[in-house]
């Protein structure tokens, strides 16, 4: 079936098997392999993309459910010669090792910083009405949907804090 997606600012018209997940549409049909498949069951976060500005697991949703939606993938966040502040901070803080979970981490963190900015509390936020601080606890809590088996977690936290401090 036909699905229209606005991906990284480009309109894409796809003719897809209705069983195709958004993740597989990106990887198999658009060559956008920056979005990773780690579990295909919404358990690891490697496939995180932003749909209409919100982070989601692209393996848990069918592409045909997103007709006319705006999708931002890691490729849309920044390329090697034009990295976002967050991407640069992941490099400088060594916020990855093997790199497989990294695009998902960065998409997730990009959206997460917006959530904080918009005053969304998390499980560990003390003041539900105020602005959450980007403490280690807050960042770790909000990033716990993205697994990293190399366990760059402490460096991921530092990278996010650094990029946020620079007004990412």
């Amino acid at each position: 079936m036909q699905t229209n997606l606005m991906i990284n600012g480009t309109q894409q018209q796809l003719e897809l098997d209705p069983r195709t997940t958004l993740l597989d549409a990106l990887r198999h049909h658009l060559g956008l392999t920056g979005t990773k498949k780690g579990c295909d069951h919404g358990q690891c976060g490697a496939c995180t993309v932003m749909v209409n500005g919100r982070r989601i697991n692209s393996c848990l949703t069918l592409a045909c459910m997103h007709d006319e939606d705006e999708v931002t993938t890691i490729e849309g966040i920044g390329q090697p010669d034009n990295l976002s502040a967050l991407q640069k901070a992941f490099v400088s803080e060594d916020g990855f090792q093997c790199g497989y979970c990294t695009p998902g981490q960065i998409c997730s963190a990009t959206a997460m910083l917006e959530e904080v900015k918009n005053g969304w509390p998390s499980h560990v936020t003390d003041d539900l009405d105020g602005q959450a601080d980007l403490s280690t606890e807050e960042i770790s809590e909000r990033m716990s949907g993205n697994l990293c088996r190399c366990s760059a977690y402490p460096n991921i936290v530092e990278a996010i804090r650094k990029a946020a401090g620079e007004g990412a």
Partner: peptide, 9 residues
Amino acid sequence: EGPLKVSGT
């Protein structure tokens, strides 16, 4: 290789 890994390339 960091810039490649953080940009999904």
